[in-house]
Design a binder for these strands. Structure first.
Length: 606
RNA sequence: GAGCCAGUGGCCUAGUUUGGAUAAGGCGGCAGCCUCCUAAGCUGCAGAUCGGGAGUUCGAAUCUUCCCUGGCUCGCCA
């Protein structure tokens, strides 16, 4: 297809070149036109073909406005001249002038064959790139004082989708999770448990159990501010290795980890490597000290800081006056450690937009330290998630818990499945409800541009209608259903044939020679859209924006559904039926490829 | 106060990076479609000063600028 575009553009260039050599206007750039400078000038115009919105306007379009000024002629006249100078040949069947536009029509059977054959050939690889990078992706990053909530779910789903996407396109992705397992917030839940927990064992999911004490602490601390100091004291004891405190920390963290791993399992999220803040929080000090010696960093009343004014950023303190480290200290260490240990092409962080400045500063500091790979670091920033009544507040227990949300949506899927299929085994219901429920949740969180804040709508988030994963999965189920009936039909026909039936034989579709000119308007549209999958994947990967892909999948499914309703596939003439089956199998392949890039499974039947 | 991000029908969003033909979907509302391949679906109707002004351009939701509104950030917190 690009070949056709190039050919068309080449011919337009030829026309332009001829025109320009006749112009000797000193005001124009080409007054002293030599063939070389003319070509250079044409290149600088950056002429491109567009794809018209409507099929009736052709396959490619060239707006002539862009040449009107250069040639000092009306766009319409230019269009007429170009059309005269062009040769219509091979896949180009027609060129039409519509106002200032030149509309090119390409032989549909040529386009159809090219696209459908490519899908049939590449199958699950269709549309995918052949990248070969080694990339570390950090996401999730929970605190160990409370269970995972909706905010974490958006992070997990995004991180997981981006990782999956990059993996499927050939990259090696190392999924890592940095656990914030120490610090004042952890001590808060520890202190509350110590005071009021009576040394009890968890009587509910163990991370929720710990979270309860965090909320309890915050409540009590409002009445009694001294508790804050007590927690600080506990943190110091933890840092100095107080046996009792460390034992409590270990005990409660274990509860949280157990809870987390259950939650991750429920969400089908996994990591290759875990980093623990408790193990690295003191590291990075040497890097900072060395930086000071080399005059990269500066000192102010004993504290070491990075002056980032050259980067147009506020200064950042890297080590306290008392010599203790800060969050950024370990971040510097970890950024370097990740690169060193893993020989990465790139290192990405999936972290909320509230930390935009933090990462700008971190990356600037890495640059100051003269690491050549500094520009390989990327903060994949995403928007906040708000509840209908505002921001989530863990302190007040005002959150949507990850477990509740996942369970609820899977339960709802179960309910819907049982409504439709009374005879399905429990195991099958289990599997299918997870595919549909999780798919719906993932899709809901991915379909919005990741930089945008999401105002969480509880009803919409668990909906299976409209712009949702089940809508798309349902399309696949329909195709499967038709294909199944088609296969039975063939079997039947073959049987009858052996009985010397007069019925025509329909060969298996993949062995059939398809007539690519047989397709109607909707079918041509569908195939064209299938052909755009490559570009969508490319853009999605390039911009790391899953929402581009979700939008495409919705558009494709919608067009398919329209087609499904207007066309009775299994009642068409044999050669038409074959072509249609061939088409819908391709549609299914592309939808499936797209969903899988986002780690969304699809049940065969719904 | 400064920096960053956003503002598109009642609600949620796509389109903005790369300016082009009538601003595209979903939810909700109304009116229809299952003796027909799964109605988790489809069709139709109503509903938009693309936050506002100015500018650039043959052409602006898209670029520039000013203003308004909302969010995030600006710790020797994480």
């Amino acid at each position: 297809m690009d070949k056709i575009k190039t050919t068309i553009l080449q011919q337009i260039n030829n026309y332009l070149e001829k025109q320009l050599t006749h112009i000797h206007d000193p005001a124009t750039l080409v007054s002293d036109a030599t063939p070389h400078s003319t070509k250079k000038f044409i290149n600088s115009l950056n002429l491109t073909l567009e794809t018209p919105k409507e099929q009736t306007l052709g396959d490619y379009a060239f707006p002539c406005f862009q040449l009107a000024k250069v040639l000092k002629k009306s766009p319409n006249l230019i269009a007429q001249e170009i059309i005269k100078s062009m040769q219509i040949e091979r896949p180009i069947t027609k060129i039409e002038i519509k106002g200032a536009y030149l509309n090119f029509f390409i032989d549909k059977s040529y386009l159809n064959e090219k696209i459908l054959k490519e899908i049939a050939k590449k199958k699950e690889k269709f549309g995918l790139l052949k990248q070969k990078k080694r990339i570390m992706l950090e996401y999730s990053s929970p605190n160990t004082n409370k269970p995972l909530h909706l905010g974490h779910v958006r992070n997990c789903v995004l991180g997981d989708a981006i990782a999956t996407m990059l993996e499927k396109n050939g990259n090696k992705i190392i999924r890592v999770c940095l656990v914030n397992d120490r610090g004042i917030h952890i001590c808060k839940s520890m202190l509350a448990y110590k005071k009021w927990g009576n040394n009890a064992q968890p009587d509910c999911k163990s991370d929720f159990f710990v979270g309860k004490y965090y909320v309890l602490f915050c409540k009590e601390a409002e009445k009694n501010p001294e508790l804050e100091q007590e927690a600080q004291k506990m943190l110091q004891e933890w840092e100095s290795g107080n046996k009792e405190v460390v034992a409590l920390w270990k005990k409660m963290n274990k509860w949280v980890y157990n809870g987390f791993s259950e939650s991750y399992k429920k969400m089908d999220i996994h990591f290759h490597k875990m980093y623990y803040e408790s193990k690295i929080y003191k590291k990075g000090k040497n890097i900072v000290k060395k930086g000071l010696k080399k005059d990269i960093f500066k000192e102010d009343n004993g504290a070491i800081y990075a002056d980032l004014s050259l980067f147009n950023l506020p200064k950042k303190v890297l080590m306290r006056a008392d010599g203790t480290s800060l969050y950024i200290t370990q971040d510097i260490f970890l950024a370097i450690e990740k690169m060193k240990q893993n020989k990465l092409h790139a290192s990405y962080y999936v972290v909320g937009s509230e930390q935009n400045l933090h990462f700008q500063q971190l990356f600037a500091i890495i640059k100051q330290l003269k690491y050549k790979w500094a520009d390989k670091l990327k903060h994949i920033s995403y928007g906040m998630v708000y509840l209908p009544d505002g921001k989530m507040k863990s302190r007040e227990g005002k959150v949507v818990d990850a477990d509740d949300l996942v369970e609820e949506i899977i339960e709802l899927a179960k309910y819907e499945i049982k409504l439709r299929h009374k005879d399905l085994s429990d195991k099958a219901v289990e599997k299918r409800s997870k595919q549909i429920g999780l798919g719906a949740l993932r899709f809901y969180l991915l379909k919005t541009d990741l930089t945008k804040d999401i105002y969480f709508d509880p009803k919409e988030s668990i909906s299976f209608e409209g712009e949702t994963a089940p809508y798309i999965q349902y399309g696949i189920a329909r195709i499967n259903s038709i294909k199944k009936k088609y296969d039975e039909l063939i079997k039947e026909v073959n049987k009858n044939k052996s009985k010397k039936s007069k019925k025509k034989l329909i060969k298996h579709v993949t062995n059939t020679k398809i007539d690519f000119a047989i397709y109607n308007e909707t079918e041509n549209k569908l195939i064209k859209l299938l052909g755009e999958f490559n570009k969508v994947v490319e853009d999605t990967i390039k911009q790391l924006k899953p929402s581009l892909l979700t939008r495409y999948l919705l558009d494709l499914t919608q067009l398919f559904n329209m087609y499904y309703h207007e066309t009775q596939i299994l009642q068409s003439a044999p050669n038409v039926m074959d072509a249609r089956i061939y088409l819908i199998i391709s549609v299914k392949q592309v939808i499936k490829n797209g969903l899988e890039l986002l780690h969304i499974e699809s049940p065969g039947e719904m």
